[in-house]
Design a protein around this nucleic acid. Structure first.
Lengths: 140, 140
DNA sequence: TGAAGTCACTTGCAAATTGCAAGTTAAAAG
DNA sequence: CTTTTAACTTGCAATTTGCAAGTGACTTCA
């Protein structure tokens, strides 16, 4: 249980989420880790929306501070850092899922294959995401 | 189905959500409407987190543009505007719920009464929110 | 082994956004 | 009428963002 409460605008849990995730990039980084399996700075820089390198560095730092992701040096390449979602990070799967379902229901968006899977069986989809994460976590 | 696609960074539905809601205030305004039944500029200004008046005006304008809320003149007081959630707006209930549950599971937050209700029976909670909205919509 | 990448960042700076305080305008209340 | 109130708008300083151009510690390849 992180206690950044003293710095927070209020104790409301929604406000806590908004203060950690309420910007234009954090959730997209988490998406790329959760759904595409990306795990390096270089990969994140290639995200379709085009994040700037200084913003990426800042968001990664903050996500680590919040305990949502963690960074470990690559065992075979000394230059590389391998980023991964923590339990707290993978627990964002339902949030991302609801955001995707909401937007796809009300806006004209792409990636209908993903949306169809989520809509058809939300719990099944979440189980798969968690399973994949547990598997990759055991490899670390 | 709104089509702001031409202006969007990508067609990803998560990105669409982030572009509409990814800031430090929009979801808090929606929370105050959805859970506290607030509906006027003056009430929103009183939100515990302390939104600035110009930011509030800007966010309300954008939320109207996105079709998430709408504004109607008050029938008995010509100064007043009554804001309300549209269908698209009330459909954010699952998103807010998951964000509240995530933060309360991983951070030290308040409003445990709300959290307990959400945790105990999520679908029941959502049904109540929708019911209340449908009722207030029929009064308009 | 030494030159040429690569990876994960920093730095500098202009532009946009935010936050605070102080108006403004139209309508309602006293 | 005069004063309040509701919903904004304006001005301005401070913070944040976005782009371009480094930097320094590895790794790769001739």
């Amino acid at each position: 249980m992180a206690k950044h409460n003293n710095l927070r605008r209020s104790g409301c849990p929604l406000n806590a989420s908004v203060e950690m995730l309420g910007d234009r990039w954090s959730l997209l980084i988490i998406r790329d880790m959760m759904l595409r399996g990306w795990n390096s700075y270089k990969q994140f820089l290639e995200c379709y929306e085009g994040i700037a390198t200084n913003i990426l560095a800042d968001r990664l730092k903050k996500l680590v501070e919040y305990g949502i992701i963690e960074a470990k040096p690559d065992s075979t390449d000394g230059r590389k850092l391998v980023y991964s979602l923590t339990k707290k990070g993978i627990d964002l799967a339902p949030v991302l899922t609801e955001m995707v379902l909401w937007a796809s229901a009300h806006e004209d968006t792409g990636n209908q294959a993903l949306v169809r899977r989520m809509r058809q069986d939300k719990e099944q989809f979440l189980a798969e995401v968690r399973e994949r994460w547990a598997k990759s976590a055991s490899e670390r």
